[in-house]
Amino acid sequence: MTTFTVNGRTHQPEGPSEMPLLWYLRDLAGLTGTKYGCGLGICGSCTVLVDGQAARACLLHVGELEGRAITTIEGLSADGMHPVQLAWRALNVAQCGYCQTGQIMQAAALLAATPKPTDAEIDAAMSGNLCRCGTYPRIRAAIKLAAEGGEA
């Protein structure tokens, strides 16, 4: 049986080891903040952190996660006060909002690895996260705001 942590809590999923992490999180763990988008790993809606690195939950199988630490949007900050979340709210980034949890998780991973990213670094890191509403300028501005440690 595979054992891993999700948001600091130990999980031992029962069932097939090839179950996608996305379905485990949503259907069995009750963590519905991680969204299903394409199921192919190209839209980024299901982005979570695995050992601090952005990863697509639709492409990971629970059997591959032995000993790993998964963080979902629910675990990014217990009170919603992570700098990226604060910046997102300050700049009203979300429009329809569907992709935003994946965007936020990708941005959090970027800032953990590169605390003061350039526009090019932001664009490169975020290029795999799609937004049908086209909020890309607000996403970039929010990442820059979070990097500065401020609120608008």
Rank of each mutant, 00 (worst) to 15 (best):
L59H: 00
I122T: 10
A112V: 10
L21Q: 05
E148F: 02
G67K: 06
R132Y: 00
H61P: 00
T47R: 01
H11A: 14
T72E: 01
D51S: 08
L49T: 05
C43E: 06
M1R: 14
E66F: 06
S127K: 13
L49N: 04
A109C: 12
N7T: 04
P13Q: 02
A57T: 00
T3H: 10
D51R: 07
L31T: 01
L49G: 09
A108I: 12
G39F: 13
D51Q: 08
A87E: 09
M126L: 15
R138I: 05
C96D: 09
L145F: 00
P117E: 11
A94L: 11
A109T: 10
P13A: 01
C131D: 08
L145H: 01
Q100W: 00
Q106K: 12
C96Q: 02
R89A: 09
P20Y: 11
C46S: 06
A29S: 11
V93M: 02
L31G: 02
R89C: 03
I70A: 02
R26T: 09
P16K: 12
G97I: 01
A141Y: 01
S127C: 09
G52H: 05
N92D: 15
W23I: 01
P16Q: 08
L130I: 14
I42C: 10
K116F: 07
R138S: 12
V48Q: 03
I122M: 12
T3A: 15
C99Y: 00
A141M: 11
T10K: 13
G128K: 03
Q100N: 09
Q106A: 15
G134H: 08
H82M: 12
T47A: 12
V6E: 00
R26D: 06
T118H: 09
E66C: 09
A87C: 08
A112F: 10
R9E: 11
C46Y: 03
A120W: 07
G67F: 03
A55H: 05
E14I: 07
T114Y: 03
E14S: 15
T114H: 11
C96M: 04
C58T: 01
L145T: 13
